[in-house]
Write a protein that binds this DNA or RNA. Structure first.
Lengths: 151, 151
DNA sequence: ATTCAATCATTGACATTCTCAACGACCGAT
DNA sequence: ATCGGTCGTTGAGAATGTCAATGATTGAAT
């Protein structure tokens, strides 16, 4: 009558169907994988994201905080760390002397390129359960959710 | 020639294409919405997930920690809180006197039902940018990622 | 030109959360 | 009866998130 030993329930019926919960779990898994991949480079996913913006955008710390949804005070310590490692520099904004522009040094550009590859490698493993087409679809859906507050 | 004012770049080119990053951002957004929706019920998404397991599964604290990927010590304080509010009870496991089974009280069942609705309402808003079909597809993809470590 | 509210980076305090090691109570097997 | 392993609990320390206050600087109003 009941050959089903309830193996289909992973956590709990409602939680298994709760997109927020799944999002949190998948995100935690992915972040953990990313952090271990970045460890040997002396980075975490947090500092990596700051380095990425410094390398590709060159934003003010304020702008950086908004893009990454961080508190400005967190940006201070993150940039402090990266600057201490020589990966990033604070430049004065010529048009606003209050602001500090964060740019990657040559060394920072190099490390960013390697970190980018490390993250990509970790993601290949993490996302292996999905086909390539599915990974693209997931990226599209997530982008529309994650940036829903912009525009 | 270039009517594109680069509005397509939200954070940074590589970050915008980084599924881990999008996952983290969408998850943070969703969790924040869930927390505000649960605030008036005196819950957070964390305690809600514990309450959900107590109501639907009735696991030992050990089992609970594994399902939610929490440290056993975190489970202690979470269950302490819920128990202090009369939402949950610790029962002795008759087959193992070391273990404590966490079950929802009648009051806990009631609050869980309301919290479930509150979460659902918050998600309707958070996931509004996606069609119903897309939301289902997202759930399917996330489930396969989030539970890739099981089985 | 001066004043004044607002913005930027920074500091420091505080709460929340994560991670880990240790411990008594209890289990299963020897 | 003993012994290695597991469960819940406690406590400590690090990491993270949140928030208010401050000095320097801006832009706008007067």
């Amino acid at each position: 009558m009941a050959p089903d030993d309830d193996a289909s329930v992973r956590v709990s019926p409602t939680l298994d169907a709760d997109t927020s919960f799944l999002l949190a779990r998948a995100s935690a898994l992915s972040a953990a994988a990313g952090n271990t991949a970045l460890r040997e480079l002396g980075l975490k996913v947090r500092s990596y994201s700051v380095l990425a913006l410094a390398a590709e955008v060159g934003p003010s710390q304020r702008d950086l905080a908004e893009r990454l949804r961080l508190d400005p005070s967190q940006v201070v310590s993150l940039v402090d760390e990266l600057e201490a490692c020589g990966l990033v520099k604070r430049r004065l904004d010529p048009s606003d002397r209050r602001a500090r522009i964060v740019v990657a040094t040559t060394e920072g550009q190099g490390l960013f390129a390697r970190a980018r590859e490390a993250i990509a490698g970790a993601q290949r493993e993490t996302h292996a359960p999905l086909t390539g087409k599915e990974q693209l679809a997931l990226g599209d859906l997530l982008r529309r959710l994650a940036y829903a507050d912009l525009r």
